[in-house]
Every structure is written in C-alpha cells, then in structure tokens.
Simulated assay, not measured.
Amino acid sequence: MTPAVELDDIRLDRDGRRVLDGARLRLLPGERIALSGANGAGKTTLLRVIAGLTRPDSGAVRLDGRPCRTEADFRPARLGIGFLFQESDDQLFCPTVVEDVAFGPLNQGLSYPDARARAEAMLAELGLSTLAERPPHHLSGGEKRLVCLAGLLVMEPRMLLLDEPTNGLDDAAERLLVARLDAFAGAMIVVTHDPALPDRLGARPLRLDGGCIAEG
C-alpha cells in the first residue's frame, strides 16, 4: 500500500535553532497518528512541511508516493488535504459562516448554489445551522473551531492535518468534534497535548522530541 505521507530525514533550522533534525514519518491511507511534544518542539512546523507551506532545508517529502519539492508538486496534493490551523482566526475570513464553509467547494469548481447547499448541509451535520449567517469574528472560540472543521470536511479531503483541534472547546463541542473526526475514513495526523485524545480517536501515539519522531 502506497503511504499517504512519507517524510525521510527532514531537517529544518529556524532562527539559528535546529527545529527538525532527521525527522521520519510514514502514514498509510486511513491511518491515524497523534503527535505530542513540548511547546516549541516543531509539531506545527512538521504539519506545515507535510502540506508544503514550509520547506525543509533537506530531506524528502512524498505524498501518495509522489516526491514533492516545489509549489507545483504540492499544489495538486494539497487539494486532498484539510489543514486545521492552531489559530482559528487565521482560517476564517468571509463575511458570514456559511460563506466561509462554502469557500472551499467554490474553489473546487462547484456553482455557488451547489457550494452553499453543501456548506449548509455540513453546518447542519455539526449542529451549527443557527450560526450560518453570523460573522465568524462574532463567534466563541469553540464555535470558530467547529466552523473551521466544517470548512475542511465539506471539501471531502483524503487526509486531515489537525493542530490542537480540541483547543477552546467545551465538553459538548469536544464530544461532537471527536465523534465527527472518528467517523472520518481518511488518513489523519493530530497534534495534541490531550493525553486522552489518541485513544479516543484510535490513533497511534508519536512524540516529537529533539527534532526527531519516536513512538509516544
């Protein structure tokens, strides 16, 4: 089976500090990995390397078996990746919630009526229909998190990269988010400080320490 993600000997320096130092990772289609590590260990940077948003100084990135080195390599692969940023405000920019969720399907080529219908259906699935016409910057932190997730899932990605997905959620919203993630059939990498989340998602625990990835 061709891995969804392969990282081989990834090295990256930032501000004179080695952030990733020979990091290696192999993620199969449908597999789930939960990545932990200290603050500043490079977990977010690793997700950005996988998505092609940050380029390593050396090492190889392969997505679905294809080497990815340039933006032209990453662009088609990125269409199948849903990336949940750590800060929700970095991901919400449209006047209303439903427009934010419809933005991805519009970029996939759907007509506006079809994109909006798909967005409304996803909001309903996550219990967010009452937020559809609200400005995203008026939402609570937990509501923003769920709207960002809706914006990813509505695009039907093959893989999710999730940076601290449960941050800012109350218990009810967290249960809803975890249940929806657990139903996701694609590959998944979750960065988390929550020690219970790997078991809840059936994810293999790994730890990033000293720029390297080890069993967690």
Rank of each mutant, 00 (worst) to 15 (best):
A60G: 02
A72M: 03
V61A: 00
P56G: 06
P67Y: 05
G82Q: 13
V49A: 05
A77P: 03
F83K: 07
L53A: 03
G52Q: 11
P76Q: 12
T70A: 13
R66Y: 08
R78I: 09
G80K: 04
A60D: 14
L46D: 08
E71G: 03
R66W: 04
A72F: 06
G82P: 07
D57P: 01
L79M: 11
R48Y: 03
D64Y: 14
I81C: 04
R75V: 11
T54G: 02
L84F: 06
D73F: 03
I81R: 00
G59S: 12
P67W: 03
P56A: 09
D73G: 01
V49T: 03
R75L: 15
F74K: 07
T54W: 05
R78V: 08
C68S: 08
R48G: 00
R69F: 00
L53D: 01
R55W: 12
P56D: 10
T70L: 01
I81Y: 10
I81H: 06
R55C: 02
G80S: 02
G65E: 04
R55T: 13
R75M: 09
G80Y: 03
D64T: 03
P56C: 13
T54A: 13
L63S: 01
G82F: 13
R66D: 00
V49W: 00
G52W: 09
P76E: 07
F74G: 05
I50V: 13
T54L: 11
V49K: 11
R75D: 11
P67M: 05
F85Q: 12
V61T: 01
G82S: 14
S58T: 14
